[in-house]
Design a protein around this nucleic acid. Sequence first.
DNA 1: ATTACTATTGACCGTTTGGTCAAGTTTTGC
DNA 2: GCAAAACTTGACCAAACGGTCAATAGTAAT
Lengths: 245, 245
Amino acid sequence: MATAKASKRKTVAAAPSSVRPKCAARPVRGKRLARNRRGDTGPAGSIRARNQARILKAAEAVFAAKGLSGATTAEIAQRAGVPKPNLHYYFGTKQQLYESVIRNILGLWLGAMDEIRPDADPAQAIGNYIRSKIRYSRDWPEASRIFAIEIIGGGKHVMGFLKTNLRKLVKEKGEAIRAWAAAGKMDPVDPAHVMFMIWAATQTYADFAAQIGAVLDKNPRADDVFETATETVVNIVLKGCGIAR
Amino acid sequence: MATAKASKRKTVAAAPSSVRPKCAARPVRGKRLARNRRGDTGPAGSIRARNQARILKAAEAVFAAKGLSGATTAEIAQRAGVPKPNLHYYFGTKQQLYESVIRNILGLWLGAMDEIRPDADPAQAIGNYIRSKIRYSRDWPEASRIFAIEIIGGGKHVMGFLKTNLRKLVKEKGEAIRAWAAAGKMDPVDPAHVMFMIWAATQTYADFAAQIGAVLDKNPRADDVFETATETVVNIVLKGCGIAR
DNA sequence: ATTACTATTGACCGTTTGGTCAAGTTTTGC
DNA sequence: GCAAAACTTGACCAAACGGTCAATAGTAAT
């Protein structure tokens, strides 16, 4: 389809002599042609929305496997089924595309945290939080991997998020945990480190899937792996924190 | 020093006209000049050993921060304080240098596992294992990060290690854990998943140091962070597995 | 001192890569 | 139905990169 259409268009720079007049009258360069990125969402751009989604999805896969520097725009474009300039048309530079992908991911991070509230039962709250984090590792492993690579590399694209949103969240949820401990519902653990432990233990099923699959000699995405994983992590964390059920 | 010596050597290709005779009589190409990489160790090559160590150390730092594809040979060479061709002289290609770095890291991995033996006391054995893994995360965070990036990317350079050495190790140590459970010394947990959890919870202090530092608003390498981390992880895992102390 | 080997390095090269451009087509608003 | 805006894309480029080479310098054994 695309090829058929493309064949109609004739190339113009096919002058056999390789002189090329070097574009004497370049467009002013500075006005920048006002890259038309409009309000981003909105019904007026269904083509825009569709293509952006395709490109973002492809970019997610490639960034997850190879990181920012290892990913090539050509591979992302091919995976998305669009020519490379199209990608730049929608997202500007590779950096900006990466930042768009990261922004998507951070939204999901915060959502899962809502489970933990001081008025809830700790076994329910923390248990459900762990379950949802492991489910998330199974269903969106690529998001987790991109985040992991980003943090390992120093996290400079997410430092703002970490120092504001996430820090605040840890403080809030930490208060809940401290309140539970004060009420004798659990041991007086260090809330932040417990959260680090939960994050690590749950995200490892996305980030280190290759290792887990190799060691278990199983498909790491198999249901029984995730069931045993969930059970193990929930049991150890709850019992380890002295939370009765 | 190096510069002073270099200034003595005169360039030879500085013919002002840019013709360059194109090296008509190239050395046969095929005999390959027998890249002299000797037995690798040995006292006869103290220069070799020193330079290889410098380069490996620099490579470790750069690979840990940027991964295989993000690292440039120029940056590694600069960090090592040697010119780029020197790096190729000792290690061949970037790939091969990377594999050398990886090989170094895998050695450390196995060493730390020796702690776990069936005849030991589980609280001691597992507790010490966790302590040594966290210490390792503090002292060699770069090794952990390289390993993490490698696994996230699919682990193709370490798959052999994972499917043989590590799988065997997990099976062996798993037997020990099962034996402890059978003897009533701990709960009947799934050994492999407990190990995954321990690895995740300990390595996170190397791999995710940037996140931990940002959330805690502290230097993530500070002693008190590591002490609280160790205490938290040891307590939760031991208690969570029903191991009395 | 001669020889043989090891180590050092400036200059270079082919390829890959992110990004641009201008000419084209399609869609939208009126 | 037409003009403006949005979208598409082959061809291209400069910079960066991994890697090579041949000339040179240092070192050790005889």
